[in-house]
């Protein structure tokens, strides 16, 4: 009887951690989707926004305390996002979506290279208030940082869903995403919608990055960008232009990853580290069945 309970709690822990991790992926994916909807660009610089936010959070909070650090990180990432749109993409002669997306990849290379150079071989601690403390509840053990992540992500995601549905900014975004010409005809200030979306995407990535660098992760390292790369499939999985899709995609990938991490030890040598791949395995499986993602709208192109 005892071992059975052990199995159950272990599974529950895995799922709970997965939901928390997944809510972070949802946050990243949502920012990615907002940018995609507003500008049609697949933002390959998203992982650099995340890393920049976490890096600034860690360095500033070492001197000025965690909250100031977090604020600085979020603002930096938002500024980086706005900069990418206002200074790089806006002035590109090649305005095709593919060209702009590849351009964002260039921004990513520059930013990640620079931050990696600054971090060097170190791991920067976050100085977050919950540090390595854990919660014990009915035999389940979960890091407090994960609970905090879940709470913050849930609040932010709800907030954004409400913004989308009930504000003019949300409507402007939905109209620009659906039909850019109509958006122009009704007088949506496209420039402003674009750069605010990039800034919001950056800020959300920074918040998620901060939590991803916290316990049980060791701190801010360049490899943090891999987490952002696992959120790309979350966005594509959901259909890329769908807000609920980003949420569901993030959660699905978070849970799948966490459950795999719990059991990958049983898979032998080849299994260790497999949790890092699960995101893409899930993505391939879904895309084979539903090429437009779980919630994506079928795109009808005009020839």
């Amino acid at each position: 009887m005892k071992w059975k309970k052990h199995l159950v709690t272990r599974f529950l822990e895995a799922v709970l951690n997965g939901v928390s991790l997944g809510s972070l992926y949802s946050l990243i994916a949502l920012g990615f989707v907002i940018i995609f909807r507003a500008t049609g660009v697949m933002n390959f610089a998203h992982s650099s926004f995340l890393l920049a936010g976490a890096y600034v959070t860690a360095t500033v909070s070492a001197k000025s305390g965690f909250l100031v650090g977090l604020l600085a990180g979020v603002v930096t990432a938002a500024a980086l996002g706005a900069f990418t749109q206002l200074v790089i993409l806006r002035f590109s002669k090649d305005k095709s979506h593919l060209g702009l997306s590849v351009l964002s990849l260039g921004v990513n290379i520059l930013a990640v290279t620079e931050i990696t150079r600054r971090i060097g071989d170190n791991t920067l601690p976050l100085h977050d208030p919950w540090a390595a403390s854990v919660w014990q509840f009915a035999g389940i053990t979960v890091p407090v940082s994960r609970i905090a992540a879940l709470a913050v992500a849930a609040a932010l995601l709800t907030g954004f869903l409400l913004l989308f549905r009930f504000t003019r900014w949300g409507l402007a975004l939905r109209v620009s995403a659906a039909d850019r010409e109509v958006a122009a005809l009704v007088g949506v200030p496209m420039g402003r919608v674009s750069w605010t979306s990039w800034a919001i995407g950056g800020a959300m990535a920074a918040l998620a990055g901060m939590f991803l660098a916290g316990f049980p992760a060791p701190g801010v390292e360049p490899s943090l960008t891999n987490s952002a790369m696992r959120a790309f499939p979350a966005a594509v999985l959901g259909g890329l232009d769908s807000i609920p899709g980003a949420l569901v995609g993030g959660l699905a990938i978070g849970i799948a990853e966490s459950v795999t991490a719990t059991y990958e030890g049983h898979l032998g040598g080849f299994g260790s580290g497999a949790s890092g791949l699960v995101a893409y395995v899930v993505l391939f499986a879904v895309l084979l069945l539903r090429p437009d993602g779980l919630f994506g709208t079928k795109v009808v192109s005009r020839v």
């Binding site: 003019r168 409507l171 402007a172 939905r174 109209v175 109509v182 009704v186 007088g187 949506v188 200030p189």
Partner: peptide, 10 residues
């Protein structure tokens, strides 16, 4: 209604 309101975004 949302389509209508889109017309008033400016």
């Amino acid at each position: 209604e949302e389509n209508l309101m889109a017309g008033a975004l400016a």
